[in-house]
Amino acid sequence: MSKLIDLTMELHEGMPTYPSPWHPTVDIHQIGRIDMEHRRSYSVTLGSHTGTHMDSPAHMVKDGITIDQIPPETTVGAAKVLDFSHKGRGDKITLSDIQGVGVKLERGDRLIIKTGWYKEWGSNAYYDRWPWVTAEAAQYIVDAGVIFVAMDLPSPDDPLGDTGYGKASPIHDIFLTRGVILVEYLTNTLSITAPEVKIIALPLKVRGVDGFPSRVLVEQ
């Protein structure tokens, strides 16, 4: 019997966000109260890359499609699981790792990269030298025709790389310039035990933005 696994981080006031000026903190403010307005309602302020979220090509590509233009068929369907749960702080996911994991990549594939790094969420370690994908490995994935990559990492890029304000993010660029849709900040990936699952990854349909928090479920 199949079961659903929720890979989505909970959004809440004070949650960690990437330590940069273009990643605002989360503000959740109640504006409607049962005892006063006879209804609950909230104002929610967050960045487009808060928690579990999807990157569209527009995140890095000047004329790339935006989050509302991503076909749902790209982000819903069968996904192959690449298990790198043996990788730890600062480890590279290399071309030989991708080739040696025993999963044949084919055109139209969706991938889930599983490392277990989400276990560091809420600590200073989470943003300190996460496992990352080398350029050769990323290029191999896009050359195989993969259309979607979801990962339990804050970024596929080298955390020690020079990717700050005004700088390129080379691994993002490899994926997004080829139209590959990315999901980052998955949680609970170690609950995935099957080599292939059905993934459902859907952001809100917000016009013209580069990314947005997404609910991500898998069925195995």
Rank of each mutant, 00 (worst) to 15 (best):
Q69V: 08
Q69P: 07
Q69T: 10
Q69E: 15
Q69C: 10
I70D: 02
P71T: 08
E73V: 12
T74K: 13
T74V: 15
T75G: 01
T75H: 01
G77S: 06
G77L: 05
G77H: 03
A78T: 13
A79C: 09
A79R: 03
K80S: 11
K80A: 09
K80H: 11
V81L: 08
V81T: 05
V81P: 06
L82W: 00
L82K: 00
D83H: 01
D83P: 01
D83Y: 01
F84Y: 12
F84I: 06
F84P: 02
S85N: 01
H86G: 13
H86N: 15
H86M: 10
K87Q: 07
R89H: 13
R89I: 10
G90E: 05
G90K: 05
G90V: 07
D91A: 14
D91K: 05
K92A: 14
K92Y: 03
K92C: 06
L95P: 02
L95G: 02
L95T: 02
S96I: 09
S96W: 05
I98V: 14
I98E: 00
V101M: 04
G102H: 04
V103N: 03
V103A: 03
L105C: 05
L105G: 03
E106K: 13
E106Q: 13
R107F: 10
G108K: 11
R110T: 10
R110M: 08
R110L: 09
R110Y: 05
L111K: 08
L111S: 09
L111C: 08
L111N: 08
I112Y: 00
I112C: 01
I113S: 01
I113T: 03
K114M: 14
K114V: 07
G116Y: 05
G116I: 09
W117L: 05
K119V: 14
E120D: 11
E120K: 15
W121Y: 15
W121I: 14
G122D: 12
S123R: 12
S123C: 08
S123I: 07
S123L: 09
N124E: 15
N124D: 15
A125H: 10
A125S: 11
Y127T: 09
D128C: 04
D128S: 08
D128E: 11
R129Y: 07
W130Y: 06
P131S: 02
W132R: 00
W132K: 00
V133Y: 00
T134S: 12
A135D: 13
E136C: 02
